[in-house]
């Protein structure tokens, strides 16, 4: 354990990983309960377009991905609200188009290389110092914004109609959630990559929801599962040379499986 922490790249990976995983888990609980888990998946595809645009224009891909993802999240939200599109339709349109534009730009720029692969599959061990700073700053921002709107988000997620009659601005909260999701997807991309970032939003939260009795419990358990999975991924990469991203997601899935089994056993009266 001491060995692992003496490496600068491991320290950076752990710090960024822990903060990002908490942001993913907290946000994920709201998305899963709102049946909006596909928003993260869709925005991850949009993020690919942003990364490609960054590579094409020679601008830092992380920053370009952030701008593109936030912009598209707002548009998706507006389309759902104003244009009468079904929620998954708006996501489907943007995710496919984002991916398509990304493929075109990457081909035009001739940069289908290791750089792009690290965004697609994640490479947290190669995270740079400035990326750690940005990731931690954004993760803390996401966590703080959710904390400020926690009660309203909970009410809206549980019963949107009644929340509206309590003077809660549902459309505004949906937009906040969409923007936070886009930010989280972009920073989560460094941990597990574009292809798996949606898993970090969904699986730890789904695991926590298997055994939580209160919303607060769901948030805490999901965060613990998320942090544990990311750390397990880092350890697997360090000691066994396994891919951190893949291991993170598989560990989270195994915890989900365990908690799901626990719930079924409790429901059938096998366990108290």
């Amino acid at each position: 354990m001491e060995d692992i922490l003496t490496y600068g790249f491991m320290q950076r990976a752990l710090v960024a990983g822990v903060f990002i995983s908490i942001a993913c888990a907290i946000l994920g609980v709201f998305l899963v309960l709102k049946r909006d888990a596909m928003l993260g998946h869709g925005l991850s595809h949009v993020t690919f377009g942003g990364v490609a645009l960054g590579l094409f224009l020679g601008i830092k891909p992380l920053l370009m991905a952030l701008v593109v993802a936030v912009f598209c999240s707002v548009i998706i939200q507006k389309l759902r609200e104003k244009a009468g599109l079904y929620e998954d339709t708006a996501i489907g349109i943007f995710s496919s188009t984002g991916m398509a534009i990304g493929i075109i730009l990457v081909t035009l720029s001739g940069k289908f290389n290791v750089d792009l692969f690290s965004y697609l599959f994640g490479n947290i061990l190669a995270i740079e110092r400035f990326e750690v700073v940005i990731a931690v700053f954004l993760a803390v921002t996401v966590i703080m914004v959710i904390s400020f709107f926690y009660q309203e988000l909970l009410y809206q997620t549980f019963d949107a109609e009644a929340a509206r009659t309590s003077g809660i601005r549902i459309g505004f909260l949906d937009a906040v959630l969409a923007v936070l999701t886009s930010i989280t997807v972009v920073i989560g991309m460094k941990v597990v990559g574009i292809l798996l970032v949606a898993a970090l939003l969904v699986i730890p939260s789904a695991a926590g929801l298997q055994i939580a009795k209160t919303f607060r419990q769901a948030v805490i358990i999901s965060s613990v599962v998320s942090i544990g999975s990311v750390i397990a991924g880092l350890f697997a990469a360090f000691y066994w040379d396994l891919p951190a991203a893949g291991t993170t997601v598989v560990v989270a899935f195994l915890v989900f499986l365990a908690f799901g089994t626990l719930r079924i056993l409790k429901k059938r009266g096998v366990l108290e």
């Binding site: 309960l33 909970l154 549980f158 009644a162 309590s166 809660i168 209160t214």
Partner: peptide, 26 residues
């Protein structure tokens, strides 16, 4: 009290206390 109030997701992890507390937000 909306129509679907008694048709809630039975697995939604929210306590009675949390639900009543929602009413105070207004």
């Amino acid at each position: 009290v909306p129509q679907k109030a008694t048709n809630i997701d039975p697995f939604f992890p929210v306590s009675v206390r949390e639900v009543v507390g929602m009413g105070l937000l207004s």
